[in-house]
Amino acid sequence: MSAAAADVATKVEKPPAIPHGWPRQRILGYALVCMWIAFLAGIAAYLIVAWNGELFAKYAPSYVTGLGVTLLLVAISIVLGAILSVPIAYARMSKNRFLSGLAYAYVYFFRGTPLLAQTFLVYYGVGSFRPQLDMIGLWGFFREAFNCAIFAFSLNTAAYQAEILRGAIESVPRGQWEGAASLGLHKLQTMWKIILPQALIVALRPYGNEIILMIKGSAIVAIITVYDLMGITKLTYSRTFDFQSYVWAAIIYLIIVETLRHAVEWIERRITIHLQR
């Protein structure tokens, strides 16, 4: 055993020395970086040239409102999705064939179809069953486009979050369960105190990605009449025909995503202190 390990160790080679001078890769790398810098400078220059104080004063407040709608929509959907994902992940890992099959079908459907199609299905599909919904008193909820968006987004993100949760829980070695059992801990206690803390470290990055995907995906609610950031942008564009309305929206989305990315990195640094060497 140890001899075999030593064998492997001797076969490992040193990483190649960093090449000197100007190899092809380095030239290409610098060229690409220069292209990006030129691109960003171009956008900045465009914004300076196209700057229109009157336009900004007129539409900036509605952009803020739109941003609020986007953030609220994503926040509610992510939280509802997280709650919903727990039973789905549980069912997915269940030994009961029926239960796990059902959860699999759910995840399969929501991950396999576009969010746009799901949102349309909820908004216009549900709309055509108005008499039936009226009867059970649910029409009041589905009448509002915002509620329909929350409904569709929560179901969608629940499917993704359930998979993230399941993957993370299954990534914790079996030995942890066995060790806890040998200490006489209850299954729920094991889950709460031993498995989940380790699993959530694994799950953190995928969760961050999922939130970012939701924020970008939420732009589609504009077509079911919700005035989110994208809706406001389209409205502004249709009034002004000024291309910079889209540039501003892109910049705002970029800032949110960048902020989130850093927040996730900060959290990760905090919760993995004990793993750092």
Binding site: Y124, S128, R130, A145
Partner: peptide
């Protein structure tokens, strides 16, 4: 005021009462 991408969508929503 609710904005729709095309006439067909507001027609649908008028028919179902949104």
């Amino acid at each position: 005021i609710k904005p729709y991408p095309t006439a067909q969508e507001y027609q649908l929503d008028l028919a179902n009462g949104r």
